[in-house]
């Protein structure tokens, strides 16, 4: 089966399942959870229990100038995919 570019794996999954029982169930589940929409609630930040302070790891890469430079060295893109030499 040949897939078209632009399909995400989730979309592909939903497309193939949309005629089956999963789709029927999903419609009912969406209707069911929609009850929550009727509630009047103040917008809120994400909730964490007390005494939990998220400790950020120091070794996680963040957006910084060096990253931009490194990305410039990445292989050329074609249709959203990296062009890399074929390895035989």
């Amino acid at each position: 089966m040949k897939m078209e570019r632009g399909d995400s794996s989730i979309y592909v999954l939903s497309r193939v399942e949309k005629t089956g029982k999963i789709s029927e169930d999903l419609k009912r589940i969406v209707d069911w959870v929609s009850k929550l929409k009727a509630l009047e609630l103040p917008a809120s930040e994400f909730f964490y229990p007390p005494y939990i302070t998220i400790k950020r790891r120091k070794d996680v890469a963040r957006i910084f100038e060096k990253r931009e430079k490194l990305l410039k060295l990445a292989p050329e893109l074609k249709n959203g995919l990296f062009k890399v030499p074929r390895v035989i």
Binding site: M3, D7, V12, L13, E17, I22, I29, V33
Partner: peptide, 19 residues
Amino acid sequence: YFKTRTAGFGDEVKRRILL
């Protein structure tokens, strides 16, 4: 991607991913 996720996940997991 398509074949792996279709064959690898069961119905309930698919339902929850979609929701």
